[in-house]
Write a protein that binds this DNA or RNA. Structure first.
Lengths: 204, 204
DNA sequence: GCGGCCTCCTGACATTTGTCATGCGGAGTG
DNA sequence: CACTCCGCATGACAAATGTCAGGAGGCCGC
């Protein structure tokens, strides 16, 4: 019924990208029209080749899969995006779906399974790995306000309050208040543990 | 000249392992005799199949590549270990070499290149990715004493001093002294930034 | 065996935090 | 319009952390 599905493959790891390209090419109805090793390159390739489905790694240098997906959605609405990831953090899934991504799978699936999912997505359906979906639902929505999240993010690399205050253009007292409320909302022992928790749940 | 090289492939990501298996099988002189998705499984498979070369992912559930390599060295001295990794942290390389690993490459290499390296390793030579080697040399040796490193590691998840002291069976004052000296040695602003730095350089 | 380094401790102090009460203006909701 | 959040702030206090000075014992190399 359909002709072949034209694919863009983006992953910064040569080994994996190449291997994947070979494996997917074995499927009769899939053809890889472009490959990319970075976010910007993926975008450029997509513009040049207008693939039916873009298979993007979540973590790439330059711009991550979700950012690329956002741009693609605007420029090539017909191109479906499928995100593949090693570390399935709940928050990423949410961000990805908001960016209009049509599929989200961990790298633990087999190539056959991936091929099927590519077809599913190409047919206009969505596919989200059940386990990741369950995690995302379990993690729920972020209880943090925008400011709390922002301050927490600035605290992520261990910067002292003074520096956070400066970078966020807030008073030190305010920063401490936000951190304090974030910490208590997350049930953490201190801000650093809070950062860790928020990271795990994908809230930062 | 030599017969075929018998390989064990271990990586927790099905997609990658499968793809890799297929690609490497295309090489006439390479044959995959076993696959594993975790550290312990890799060990069990190695015992059962006694491969010539074990290609291990650095990060796997159960036991990481280096731990597996250590065990393999003891149990199957004839089996050469080649570590493949996504995130090339300098410290890992050092630990790996100490564990008797014969090769260490990032996943950014191509499959052809990997095949060559497998042959190199099988022939009894060593191979370390030049870029990773350069990084490792640049990062140098850890300036931390064993205790400092231990305490810093316990501080990694944001635990308060009291907890660290308990877990390390030290007094709180001692813990603070170790942390303090570690922080100053690393030139960090506080212990959390120090943890980050030490992580980056592979010293924890 | 002496000096140097590491480990482990104590105690005191300055600084950085976390916590709480409180206030004010704006946005959104009922 | 009253009410409730959020953003932003102050100030004050308690607790955790960082910094110094010092001291004792152990191990190693010279």
């Amino acid at each position: 019924m359909t002709g072949s599905v034209r694919l863009l493959l983006a992953d910064d790891e040569h080994l994996i990208r190449g291997a994947l390209a070979t494996l997917l090419s074995l499927e009769d109805d899939l053809v890889i029209v472009a490959e990319a090793a970075s976010g910007p390159e993926a975008l450029a390739m997509a513009r040049a080749h207008e693939p039916d489905v873009a298979v993007l790694d979540l973590q790439m240098p330059g711009a991550d899969g979700v950012k690329v997906a956002t741009s693609l959605r605007a420029e090539l609405p017909g191109c479906k995006v499928l995100i593949v990831t090693s570390h399935g953090r709940p928050g990423h899934l949410k961000r990805a779906l908001e960016a209009g991504v049509r599929g989200f799978v961990p790298k633990t699936v087999s190539a056959q399974r991936l091929a099927e999912i590519i077809r599913t997505v190409h047919a206009g359906n969505r596919y989200v790995d059940p386990e990741l979906a369950a995690d995302a639902i379990a993690a729920g929505d972020s209880p943090l306000t925008a400011r709390e999240a922002e301050v927490l993010e600035l605290a992520a690399d261990g910067a002292p309050v003074a520096e956070i205050a400066e970078r966020a253009a807030l008073s030190q007292g305010t920063v401490r208040n936000y951190l304090s409320s974030a910490v208590s909302k997350l049930g953490a022992e201190n801000r650093h543990a809070a950062v860790r928790l928020a990271r795990e749940r994908g809230w930062v």
